[in-house]
Amino acid sequence: MTTATLDLTPRPGAQPALRRVWRQGLLETRLMIRQGEQVLLALVIPVALLVGGTLVGGRFGLDRDPLVGSVLAMAVWSTAFTSIAIATGFDRRQGVLERLAATPLGRTGLVGGKIVAVVLMTALQWVVLLGVGLPLGWRPSAGFTTTLVMLVGVVLAAAAFTALALALAGTLRAEATLGLANLIYLVGLVAGIVVSPAALGSPWRTVVELLPTGALGEVMRAWTGSAPAPWWALLVLAVWALAGFLLARKVFRWTM
């Protein structure tokens, strides 16, 4: 009669790369949701603007359909830029990035996790905002081409905003990142996210249309308002995404 032996030999090993990135992304998303300031930027302010603008915007010449597009653009802007910049800045100050970079997750996995968090948080915002917009009377009516431009534009804008956020958080102190990120967030609302470049007049219209905030705002307002697809905006967003990536790669520092 033979007896089975129990093998207690340690077999350390990391999970597959995609699983590591996915789990890190879920963690980053939960951390965003738990922080009051992040929830304020991500959900409370956009929902309040959508409801308030729909109810009283007609008195100030604000149409409902473009307003929905502006608020959806605000969701991408607040999550991909402001939230990522602030969270990364404080993680860097506290030494979290340095420690995570030394784990099997690695630097690439850490950045990948932040991208996953941006996608998940933006999807959550859009579900909530569209869920609010439908009872207020907005209905999707964009064609296939405009929808395709919107989807590509959102991906490029998220990439550009995330890269610029990492460049900001990777060079400044956490407190400076917090203040500057919030200031840039407010400027971005006027520079195309909420205020259309057409409302600014020349020459500011041309300047804002060349910013990623202006390009994204035009893409979203075209989609929700059934305007012609702004193909030029994709080129603007692609240039900013590439420039942001190169800048972040050059200046980002993992430690203070």
Rank of each mutant, 00 (worst) to 15 (best):
D65F: 06
R93A: 15
V51S: 07
L129A: 09
L55Y: 13
G112L: 10
V111S: 03
Q125N: 11
V96Y: 11
D65T: 08
P140S: 04
Q125W: 03
L43G: 01
A123N: 08
L97M: 14
V76W: 02
G52Q: 11
I84T: 06
I86S: 04
R139T: 14
T108I: 13
V56T: 13
L130W: 11
G95S: 11
A75H: 04
D65Y: 01
T82A: 10
L130F: 15
G25W: 08
L50C: 12
D65P: 08
G53H: 03
L50M: 14
V96Q: 09
T145Y: 03
G106N: 09
Q125R: 07
V96W: 13
S78Q: 05
I33C: 02
V68K: 07
T54M: 07
P104M: 08
F90K: 03
V71I: 11
L105Y: 05
A102D: 10
P140M: 08
E37L: 15
T146L: 02
L130T: 14
L72D: 00
L134K: 10
R64W: 09
W77C: 02
S70N: 10
D65R: 05
L41P: 00
S83K: 00
E98I: 08
R30V: 09
G36R: 12
G58V: 11
V118R: 02
V111F: 07
V127D: 00
W126T: 07
E98S: 14
L100W: 15
T103E: 09
L72K: 04
S70V: 01
M74V: 01
L72N: 02
V116Y: 07
G131R: 09
Q38P: 01
